[in-house]
Write a protein that binds this DNA or RNA. Structure first.
Lengths: 227, 227
DNA sequence: GCATTACGCTACGTCTCGTAGCGAAAGCCC
DNA sequence: GGGCTTTCGCTACGAGACGTAGCGTAATGC
């Protein structure tokens, strides 16, 4: 009696969610509506209860599925909440408003709006905290949340360079480094103001922030792009 | 049999830690060494177990006290961890290095060094996440952690204005707003790079960050204060 | 129809929580 | 020293969540 039931690992959503491409094309398929219901129920529970008081049994009840179904798809609370929160950032997109300053202000406001929702606040920070001790979770967050935001930075900078609002990068290495820097400054400032300072990210704040950031990035000689 | 033992509320460390100034000057005093042992044990457990797997029973065992003693002093896990983490930031101080750039770089490196410790990472972010649904907890964090950092920003700016590295503020209202902005940008960027991006805050990064920030703050005409 | 997989349901042992009650210890004040 | 007050360590407890196992049933592909 070495291995009895665990002959093949149960396909938990650990690494390859929504793929399970090869194999297992037979049998009853997983309900897609159940997926959506579970993630929606998770966000709802996150709003009402917060991270620490959220239980998987409660989520299952809200979603109208059995608790065991939850455990068949997600390894635990962390992974479930990451997926539930990640969906909130689907709507993020870069507006093409003509000037770099307006582009930044638009994206920051979008980001802040999403982050202002209670399910994003309590859920996202909690999983980030857990990710400090779980590399797989960190990677999951990076892939489904962070990279989606980061792409906007790269695209926005590229546009600005074409328009001459930002100097071109001398080499790819520094280009990558400054992109990381910009990303941490933008996302960090918004997150910190929203969660730690507890103050709203309104238009006035965004304008002031964008002004400082653009002055800093443009270097000595460049358009500050403020009216 | 209305109220038997709970005639007077037990003095839990909810609001006024280390004070309980009037009343109760009689009786056996609380062990101060127990306090230190508990907070140290909390940090130790935070390193080994992380936030979610940390239990108060385990902390009590590590500290060599009874579990009930813990509950007599702190209302719960949140409050305990806030106090345990707050002690880490005691060593923060503003270096007087002569130039604003060097001052900022010094403070940022100090802050990053503290934040790089695993007990700070997992503990601080977790309580911030919980604070999104608990105003008292948010206030506790602000008083014991955030304000201590913020004071450095105010002091550093004041020095820089005396030295002429930053323009003076036109009125107190905008002075306060820009101080908040600077604080969110500095702390936010460091926290985001450390926790979300998962990259180290080394000297090279700090130099780049400081350069962008100072250019942005100094406005069009001012010393960029780079070497 | 048959094999395969997902589903709902129930039940279970384990762990943590937060509290209650007790006797003993450690301080003040007379 | 004797009394008063508060804290301490210890034990025990019900409540609740965890994560899993087992079963019968439902939904697909071949």
């Amino acid at each position: 009696m070495i291995s009895l039931t665990a002959a093949r690992e149960p396909p938990v959503y650990g690494q390859d969610m929504h793929s399970r491409s090869p194999a297992s094309r037979t049998g009853r398929p997983r309900s897609a509506t159940a997926d959506a219901a579970i993630l929606a129920a998770t966000r709802e529970a996150l709003v009402e209860l917060g991270w620490s008081k959220l239980t998987l049994g409660d989520v299952a009840t809200r979603a109208g599925v059995a608790k065991t179904t939850l455990y068949r798809r997600w390894a635990g609370k962390n992974e479930l909440v990451v997926d539930a929160v990640a969906e909130l950032f689907d709507e993020l997109e870069l507006p093409d408003s003509g000037s770099l300053a307006a582009d930044i202000e638009g994206v920051v406001l979008q980001f802040a709006t999403i982050l202002a929702r209670p399910e994003a606040k309590s859920g996202l920070m909690a999983v980030v905290a857990e990710a400090t001790r779980d590399d797989a979770l960190r990677e999951r967050i990076r892939a489904s949340v962070v990279d989606r935001q980061k792409r906007l930075v790269l695209e926005g900078r590229s546009r600005a360079q074409v328009r001459g609002e930002l100097p071109p990068e001398p080499d790819p290495a520094t280009a990558s480094r400054t992109a990381d820097l910009i990303f941490d400054m933008v996302a960090g400032a918004v997150v910190h103001r929203t969660l730690v300072s507890g103050e709203p990210v309104d238009e006035a704040w965004v304008r002031g922030f964008t002004l400082v950031l653009l002055r800093g990035l443009a270097g000595g000689a460049a358009h500050t792009a403020a009216d």
